[in-house]
Amino acid sequence: MTFGETVLSVTMLAQTVRMAVPYACAALGGVWSERGGVVNIALEGTLLVSGLTAVAVHVATGSAAAGALAAVVAGGAFALVHGLLVARERVDAIVSGIALNLVAAGGTRFVLRSLYDSSSNSPSVAGFAVHVGGRASPAMSLLLRTLTDPLTILTVVATAVTLFTLYRTRFGLRVRACGEDPQAASSAGVPVVPVRVLAVTIGGMMCGLGGAALAFDQHQFQSGMSGGRGFIALAAVILSGWRPVRAVLACVAFAALDALQIVLQDQSRIPREVVEMFPYAATLASLVVIGLTRGAGRPPAGLGRHTEAA
């Protein structure tokens, strides 16, 4: 198979969709949080915490659905802490994010050791076992399985819900108002702190979905398995100009680079390490593009700002 055929294969498409789910969920988390005016680099930790929760509950109950639900709750709870620290207590958002990421990285390894006596990975779980009937080729059945995976479907639903809620509901308007100008929102009677905390929490729940997808996809939790995805998703959010659908599409582009890594791992022309760098180098390149095209995507004007001392 030539290089071109490899890149344009069904396998590549299937892997792209598969890899896009965690990115997209984390990016939706970023959109919710940052449209509300709270910088969120704790997405990385949220992915870890929710991923471990998903697996732990799956192991304990034997139900993948319970695991995914628990991951959503855990993601929301973790983000709630970030929201309270930043929006309510006015801790620097980056400091809070760094600290929470450290707690998540260490805490997940601590819990792994406590529960399963290994600091690197959990026992394996089934995840959502989707059966694809018929005589589809391996590549095609992977694509069908990925497309019919409940977590993929929920990601699409989450994107639609985000789009509708942010732009078509009173609550969404309030979130965006808090993100654009907290002072003005406050003057208009919007309770800025609760709205922001809620927005960050909703984002955390969506990000939690991504954590579950990440862990179920590997059929286990591995320490540090988020691998910078939270940060890449944040870059996608910035690249999209803080708009949900564009952010998800940007995530698909990053996921394609991840997929390339999987598809190309059997060839020997390009060293594995070089392919591994693609998503990260692409993120850097996208930061340059963002810098060059100022105005294409303006950050929420109130990002990182608070109302005057109440």
């Binding site: 990421n101 450290l102 707690v103 998540a104 990285a105 260490g106 390894r109 600091s119």
Partner: peptide, 10 residues
């Protein structure tokens, strides 16, 4: 587990 200390750090 010594990972406890990473949590404490955070």
């Amino acid at each position: 587990p010594m990972e406890l200390m990473d949590v404490i750090q955070g």
